[in-house]
Design a protein around this nucleic acid. Structure first.
Lengths: 235, 235
DNA sequence: ACAAAAGTGTTGTCGCTACACCCATGG
DNA sequence: CCATGGGTGTAGCGACAACACTTTTGT
């Protein structure tokens, strides 16, 4: 930091301060498509446009806590996985003054969201990422960065596992990869690869009430993952 | 953002604001080792400890601009490549109050730094990353995150090229990789791999005044890189 | 002629891709 | 018994790792 405490104390006042906000890119996915959850912006000059879900970070919380709060508020999900992506600091990014925004992404299975959607959760508008659309503020830019990051991450980190229910089938995992990366994967190769990583636990459960051969459920084994990570690499 | 402008306007005052700072992890490398550039902290309770180079972001600049300013101040290098890594927001991370810090990393060849070190650049203390040491504030944590990021990045992005002089030899590039990743690489395989990427230009120049066979200089060809990136993947 | 770093090819292995059919269940 | 998605094996190819000697320059 600066060499002099006094410099600090004086600078830290007034216009050296900024409002701190977080913006969440909440991805929602179905069998076929990837969406982003938005709300309607009511601030000129962006009135009426969709915007990402965000809020100011309160004085008594850090940004992760703020994100957690917002996600619970908007989706009702209490332990959703999320990651910090990038911080946007352009001086004119917000009409009301200097607002710095820390961008996060998260991901949710859309039919679970709809099933869970309860009395008190505010409704999100889901926009299909295959369409073109304009968001308020610099939110298109934020969204782009988050999409890129999500795609990069999923290729060499088990982000996908954090994003699925505790138990899932290999095919569900594959669908998630396909939707995120927008490519078609080979069933056999995908299964072989993922199982060979040795980070999935066979929990000896099967689907029920499906009108076809029931699939085996697996869960993500974090211990094995951490162990393997400390040895060498992964994926 | 929030649904109501008034919410915004009122909240944005007072204790909802934070001081905004950047901290730079300036890596320095030699043939054999990787270092981090530090200054001496004079703020209790961390007085006397080394700390990362950082400063407040001024009201008229964004965080990238602040980083650029700091790097020029401390190293004299005008176009050093740098990247944003992560933002640290814990409420008690700074003794003087709420200071949010955006972490960046950069990288410099140590002998160039020493050669260029001029009258007006403040001196940095270079700490070898193989040693154990304690930094002021949460700077050890910031440093860790930056090291991880640098290692991850270099594996699948041409970060390395941005970090070298405009013209460099393949062996210099290899040394950089070896120092950063802390592994020994095979000369032939490295050369083959890098040349096969097709993003290096042979600039038809050779080392001079070396008492051994002079090496060919290459430069990073950004056009080729961008082209290749838009086709498919890379590395 | 010697020291010092630059530069060069081949072979085995492992992981990825491509591809088509049988299995278990519900209706 | 039919429809639906679950689950399996193999062969060819390409990328990566391992490995030692010759070349060019300065002294």
């Amino acid at each position: 930091m600066s060499e002099n405490i006094n410099t600090w104390l004086s600078q830290i006042n007034n216009d050296y301060k900024a409002a701190l906000s977080v913006d969440c890119v909440i991805f929602g996915y179905t069998d076929a498509d990837l969406y982003v959850g938005t709300i309607k912006c009511n601030m000129p000059p962006y009135e009426g446009l969709p915007s990402l879900v965000g809020d100011l970070v309160r004085p008594d919380e850090n940004s992760d806590q703020a994100v957690n709060r917002i996600i619970i508020e908007k989706t009702g999900f209490k332990n959703l996985y999320f990651e910090q992506v990038h911080t946007f600091t352009n001086i004119d990014r917000h009409p009301l003054g200097r607002v710095v925004s820390i961008a996060y992404f998260s991901l949710i299975k859309l039919d679970e969201y709809q099933r869970a959607e309860s009395s008190n959760t505010k409704e999100l508008n889901w926009i299909n990422l295959n369409e073109n659309f304009i968001l308020a503020f610099d939110h298109n830019q934020i969204l782009e960065k988050c999409i890129t990051q999500l795609r990069d991450q999923i290729k060499d980190r088990p982000v996908g596992f954090n994003l699925l229910p505790k138990k899932f089938t290999i095919n569900q995992l594959q669908e998630l990869y396909e939707v995120i990366l927008q490519i078609k994967l080979d069933k056999r190769n995908f299964r072989r690869k993922l199982l060979s990583l040795g980070i999935l636990s066979d929990i000896k459960e099967f689907q029920t009430e499906v009108s076809h051969r029931p699939a085996k459920y697996y869960s993500f084994n974090k211990q094995l993952y951490d162990k393997r990570k400390s040895d060498g690499f992964l994926f």
